[in-house]
Design a protein around this nucleic acid. Structure first.
Lengths: 315, 315
DNA sequence: TGTATTTGTGACAATAGTTGTCACTATTAT
DNA sequence: ATAATAGTGACAACTATTGTCACAAATACA
């Protein structure tokens, strides 16, 4: 095997192993330890962050960083990756421990000059806007970790007035228009609930010994299973104008209920938990004359009540 | 210079030049043409897509693809990049000509096993949700291209009923909650206007010879300059509850007008174009009792009118 | 049609780089 | 102390790389 090939494979190997000894590699590659030592020095010079300790139980380590081998990207691919990462800057909180900007600048740095020029001229011409919020989300990492490792998390949850302690087992986290949400099994309610992460006042791994459930079958990909099971349901039917259809498309919860007609108008039809009435009433009021609620009657009543209240307010 | 170093630099050089001859490189690297030929063959074997033509005006070319040299990413950085790109899958339309998934799978493929495992277990536990829309955006590339190269674009713009032809000069494009928008100078209105890209029925580069303006100083980064200049303005003041503040944070237009109090409540204060009254009336109705409009009176009147209309509808 | 320009291949000797071995140093956990 | 580990230097044997030269083949252009 030629030296350059060996170096490439060595790079991969040390990245895979993270911890290893010179002898070990020498056996694996069928070369002398002296050669491996020389190779490792070269890798080091090429930027692989190697660290070594002498003595028994010593050995080499690759620090945190991983080397990606040369990758062939089409120009458009590189540009797409760049702007995808660039969009992350709109998020003040992320569940990753790194600043995405550092990754981005590395990527940018290594790109050849003309791709870089291309990106520069596109930089201020294209954007993926996400509302920037004041809300704070300091516990994303622990929630995500809980979802991955099936851990029970103790949180304090609530609004300004009331804060309650709960045990939850997160299913995942997602960001939607600038806010983070966490669907989770709630040991208090004994059901799946959706938590808004900026209302979580503290989060720590539970130590009381509550047994985690096996929720591996539940994840963000099958959200229909995430619905609370024990609530009272009723039937929803709402007539929508073309603009109304548009507005509903932006809502996460309405995707399965939305139907379209050829002429662009449409309707919402499906089952809804009775607990959602306050939220939906306000939502459909916001659609104005682009939505006409036909049932349930309780929802119509709530809408009328709210309209009256607002009429009163504006005299 | 050692062979491996030369190969690395050669990789960069050919990526930069895109088109070159063997002799040229031989001079540049101070080696014989025979050596360069051998090197290029090796690069080829390493995956650089080289293509050559013999004869005068012939030479080598690098096809479309670019090779990135080995890059050291921290594990978290690689993960962040992955999920940033992953989020692009929510966009059915992008102004890039490639499928971002191809770039993503390359990236994924080259990552070392345990980072890949980490990503796999995170894949269904974290997401950046963007509303998926029915709307079509087939002209993003041409609009973006127009913005970058300062070109005049002829579009047909309108709703179902009325379609009008216009000449515009795009300033950029951006996506917001699943829809694409294009701020542009409109030669018809002789002012900056915001176009919703799904209402653009056709878009072609203008051939009538309309002289493009010099709008290089305008871009997405200085959107305050994008405001139409000749409209009539009036003063807006709206009292907001804590929830009202939250809802306003999600709106692009309100960022500069939003003020917060210590207790979480706040208010909107600033100048607004009179043409926005219909939009704002509907918006503040949607906020229900979380917003109380104090002025302008025209806005309050419109809100009252709309409320009355809805009351009538729900009998 | 010929000529200049270009990629491309093969052979070979001179040169340059790589490797293994060995001897030795230094550190550290047990 | 001992064993395990990294690390260095020197040198000879070995291997790879390079340049040169000869020649083939394609092609644009005068």
């Amino acid at each position: 095997m030629s030296k350059s090939k060996r170096l490439m494979e060595l790079m991969m190997t040390v990245n895979r192993k993270k911890k290893f000894t010179v002898k070990e590699l020498a056996t694996e590659f069928n070369v002398s330890t002296r050669t491996i030592l020389r190779d490792l020095q070269e890798l080091s010079e090429l930027g692989v962050p190697l660290y070594s300790e002498v003595g028994p139980h010593g050995g080499y380590q690759v620090l945190n960083e991983r080397i990606l081998p040369p990758i062939a990207f089409a120009e458009e691919e590189a540009v797409a990756i760049f702007f995808a990462c660039h969009a992350l800057r709109h998020y003040a909180y992320l569940p990753f421990e790194t600043e995405s900007s550092s990754a981005l600048s590395k990527f940018y740095f290594y790109m050849s000059g003309d791709v870089r020029d291309r990106i520069d001229e596109m930089k201020n011409r294209i954007d993926f806007v996400i509302p920037s919020r004041q809300a704070k989300f300091p516990y994303l990492s622990i929630l995500l970790d809980g979802a991955i490792r099936q851990k029970v998390i103790r949180i304090e949850y609530g609004s300004r007035e009331s804060v309650s302690a709960r045990l939850i087992q997160p299913i995942g986290i997602y960001a939607s228009s600038g806010l983070w949400y966490c669907p989770a099994y709630c040991f208090l309610r004994e059901d799946i609930r959706l938590f808004r992460c900026d209302r979580i006042r503290s989060a720590t791994e539970d130590t009381s010994g509550t047994q985690p459930l096996d929720l591996r079958h539940l994840h963000l990909g099958n959200r229909e299973a995430l619905l609370p099971s024990e609530q009272q349901f009723t039937n929803l039917y709402v007539e929508l104008s073309e603009e109304g259809v548009h507005r509903c498309e932006a809502e996460y919860w309405s995707a399965t209920k939305l139907h379209r007609r050829e002429d662009g108008t449409g309707w919402l039809e499906g089952r809804m938990p009775k607990g959602d009435i306050p939220f939906l009433a306000q939502f459909f009021i916001g659609l104005g004359t682009d939505a006409t609620v036909k049932c349930p009657p309780e929802l119509i009543d709530d809408i009328k009540r709210r309209l009256a209240e607002m009429m009163a307010r504006y005299g």
